[in-house]
Each structure stands twice: as C-alpha cells, then as structure tokens.
C-alpha cells in the first residue's frame, strides 16, 4: 500500500512539475494583478468609506436641515392657518359690513319713502289748512266749540294730559258760556289730578263746585277734591268734603264712594 502511494506520488510529480514551471511567471503576474486589484480595492474601499462619511455627514446635515425645515413648515402651516382664519374673519367682517350696508340701504329707502309720504301728507294738510283758512275767513271767528272740546277731550281720554290742560284752559277762556263749560272745568281739574299737581286740581274742582253748583260734574268734583285732599294728608278737609258730597248728592254714585272712603278714614 505504501509502495503504491509512493508510486502515485512519483507519477504526479513527473507529470506536474514541467507544467508548474511553465505557469510560474503567469502566477507571479496574476499575483501581481491580484495585488494591484487589492490595492485598487483598498483605494476604492477608502473612497467608499470617504463617500460613506460624506453621505452620513450629508444625511446628518439633511436631517438637521429637515428638522429645521419641519419647524419652519409647522410655522408655515400655523401661519397659513392663521392667515386663513384672518381671511375667514375678514370675510365675515366684509359680509357683516355688506349686510349692514344692505340694511342701512333698505332703511334709507324706507326713510325716503316715509319722508315722501309725510311730504305728500304735508302737502295735503297744507291744502286742507288753506281751505280751512278760506272757511275761517268766510265765517269769521265762528268756530264750532264742540269740535275744539271734542279734540281736547280726546287728548284727555288718551292720557295726553299736558296737551289737554292747554286745550281745556283755552276752551274755558274762549267759550266760557258753552254747554261743555262745566265738563271742561272738571276735566281740567282731573288732568291736574292725574299729573299729581294736587293743589291746582283742588282749585279747579272748587271752581266747578262754585261756578256750576247744579251741573252734572259737581258731585264728582266734590269726590275728586276729597281724593286730592287725602293724597295731601289734609284729612279733616277731606272728611268735610266727603260729608258735604253725601249730604248734597245722596243719590249720586259718588255718594256711595264717599261713604266707602269715610269708613276707610274711620269716620263711619
């Protein structure tokens, strides 16, 4: 077995040795190429490493820049949103202003119309006043007292007491003998009473009592005078007035009211 192994080794050596001697230069050349390649690979590796470093550095720079950019972007988004909000608010303000303008314009139109209508009415009234003047000139001072009384009484009915005071005073001054004289005198007193001008009211009611002792406003003038006196805490005079009312006008509705007041005052 050992012999066989030795023989095979010898054969291999005889066959291979010449071949090996022929390729030695090539091997050396190959080795040289390999070395060159290895150098080139190292250079390349070095370049790659450098490039990697540069890339990493760039990436870091990019990351930094991205981070900065993100903040900037967020700021930009915020700024954009704020701008949008301002824009929306501005839109609303513009709309609101437009709406106000529209309303103002409508109101202006309405006012213009009313002014025009009032102007028309004024013209009509002027025509009527002119015609009234014509009538007045033709009849002189013969104005219907009942129309004046009616207009003044309507002021009284509607609670326009200041106007009614003037009206009744004028009426009494101009038409002292009118059938409405006692009414005007009484309602003048009642206007004062309702205005809280109690002393004037008492004077006016006394005038009704003195000037028209048999008039249909005399009983109520007594009663209202007593009420004014009660308001002023002049109770003795009030009681006197109520008793006089009961005695003079026992069947008037005011007599029953006088009775109620006297009971309240502890007299009856």
């Amino acid at each position: 077995m050992r012999q066989l192994f030795t023989l095979l080794t010898l054969c291999f050596t005889v066959l291979i040795l010449p071949l090996s001697a022929g390729t030695k230069e090539e091997i050396i050349r190959l080795q040289s190429d390999i070395l060159q390649l290895q150098d080139q690979i190292r250079v390349l590796q070095k370049n790659v490493d450098e490039k990697n470093g540069m890339i990493i550095s760039l990436l870091e720079q990019l990351n930094d820049q991205a981070a900065e950019g993100n903040v900037g972007f967020q700021e930009l988004v915020t700024a954009t949103n704020a701008a949008k909000a301002q824009s929306s608010s501005l839109d609303r303000t513009v709309q609101s202003v437009q709406e106000e303008l529209r309303v103002l314009s409508a109101k202006l139109d309405e006012t213009n119309t009313r002014v025009a209508a009032v102007h028309r009415k004024l013209e009509e009234n002027q025509v009527q006043i002119q015609s009234l003047r014509t009538v007045e000139q033709s009849v002189g001072d013969d104005i219907e007292p009942d129309r004046i009384y009616s207009a003044t009484f309507n002021d009284y009915l509607m609670g326009n007491y200041a106007l009614a005071v003037n009206g009744f005073q004028d009426f009494l001054a101009n038409f002292p003998d009118s059938e409405y004289g006692d009414n005007a005198a009484y309602y003048l007193g009642d206007c004062y009473f309702k205005q809280g001008r109690l002393d004037l009211a008492i004077q006016a009611f006394e005038q009704v009592i003195n000037l028209y002792p048999k008039g249909d406003k005399t009983a109520v003038a007594y009663y209202k005078k007593a009420q004014a006196l009660q308001e002023l805490q002049r109770l003795e005079q009030a009681i006197e007035t109520l008793k006089a009312l009961k005695q003079l006008f026992p069947n008037a509705p005011e007599a029953q009211l006088a009775n109620d007041d006297l009971i309240k005052l502890g007299v009856e």
Binding site: Y186, D216, K217, Y223, K224, P253, Q256, L257
Partner: peptide, 10 residues
Amino acid sequence: VMDADGSNLR
C-alpha cells in the same frame, strides 16, 4: 260711561 272707580258716571 264712567271712570274706572265708578265715579263720573254719565
């Protein structure tokens, strides 16, 4: 017509 307290009846 009368005042609301019952007076001034006519």
